[in-house]
């Protein structure tokens, strides 16, 4: 084959044009007719402004917005559908998960948790490597939070309605004083859980594990000494629980376990069941009971048959 300038230039352009037709124009012909999915709704002005801030600060480089069938983390309740993206301009699928996928993050946390987290992500998540975004200022942060809370569209709206309802309840309980607050908190735990003591004995190793989990997951809000004065505290209302008030207020290992596992929707207390397996939750609960409440029911009756590993 004789490679003349014409052959090189026209030949490669013709090939490119053909392939553009096959891999860009043909798929466009039907992907551009995608109908909105069942959860889709139009974004509000604030949410769109927040999305612009999200783009300007390159959030897309660390957060994907595309949940896969193989995922377990945030948003795993809903696998991405083409119809979720019909208003995304540009689309923000992302290519890295330096942080979690946030396509369904709306309503996972209340607004005040997000504010503390944006001011400094380590206030709520001590191991986070996300940059602080305080420099954006309150107006942009508010819009950014509106955007994040809209992720998941109608599903997010349902979760936000739930957050707002329980936020009002939690504030009422907090403002009624410690007795009423603790009673309110415990009242929403199924009776079975309330009756369960921590079934495992307190051990130095278990406390050390609990200490480690506490530092990695709890310290930002509840503080190093469990008095609820962690760095996130000033942004959060009702404020993080001061564990020392739980003394003599009938807190069982089961109550602590349930609250850590399930979180307290409406407050900044997230659920940890995706982050922590059973043993880690029992250990950190016992750490809190031993060090901050000074009242652990570990290994008391009813505790069932002792687990095989116990000395």
């Amino acid at each position: 084959m004789k490679m003349t300038p014409l052959a090189v230039i026209v030949g490669s352009l013709l090939i490119l044009a053909t392939i553009v037709f096959v891999v860009v124009i043909l798929p466009f012909a039907h992907t551009s007719k995608t109908v909105p999915s069942d959860i889709f709704r139009v974004r509000t002005a604030e949410e769109s402004a927040g999305r612009a801030t999200y783009i300007a600060n390159g959030c897309v480089y660390c957060h994907s917005q595309s949940v896969r069938t193989i995922d377990w983390d945030l948003g795993a309740e809903r696998i991405a559908q083409a119809g979720d993206y019909v208003a995304d301009y540009p689309i923000l699928l992302g290519s890295q998960r330096t942080g979690p996928d946030i396509s369904q993050a709306g309503g996972e946390h209340p607004d005040d948790w997000h504010m503390a987290h944006f001011i400094n992500p380590r206030y709520t998540r001590t191991l986070s490597l996300m940059p602080p975004f305080e420099f954006l200022g309150p107006a942009k942060l508010d819009n950014l939070i509106r955007y994040v809370q809209s992720l998941g569209f109608k599903d997010a709206d349902k979760r936000m309605t739930r957050q707002r309802y329980w936020k009002a309840e939690a504030v009422k309980a907090y403002e009624a004083g410690p007795d009423a607050n603790v009673a309110w908190l415990s009242a929403h735990i199924p009776q079975g859980w309330r009756d369960v003591p921590n079934p495992y004995p307190t051990s130095a190793a278990g406390l050390a594990r609990g200490h480690k989990i506490y530092q990695d997951f709890c310290l930002g809000c509840h503080g190093p000494v469990g008095d609820g004065m962690g760095p996130a505290q000033q942004w959060i209302y009702p404020p993080p629980l001061n564990f020392t008030i739980l003394k003599n207020r009938e807190i069982s290992g089961g109550i602590l376990y349930y609250q850590i596992m399930n979180g307290i929707t409406g407050t900044a207390m997230p659920y940890f069941k995706r982050d922590l397996e059973s043993e880690k939750i029992w250990d950190v609960g016992n750490y809190v009971a031993v060090y901050f409440i000074n009242d652990s029911d570990a290994n008391t009756e009813p505790r069932g048959i002792d687990a095989a590993y116990e000395p």
Binding site: V20, P27, Y85, V86, A87, Y89, P90, I91
Partner: peptide, 27 residues
């Protein structure tokens, strides 16, 4: 391909909407 991929005929956004945007972007 730079002009095509950057949707140069749309100066304000440089993007398409939704899934077609993802296909064009990675092309």
């Amino acid at each position: 391909t730079y002009a095509l991929g950057n949707v140069i005929w749309r100066p304000n956004s440089g993007a398409l909407v939704g899934i077609p945007d993802a296909i064009l972007l990675w092309f």
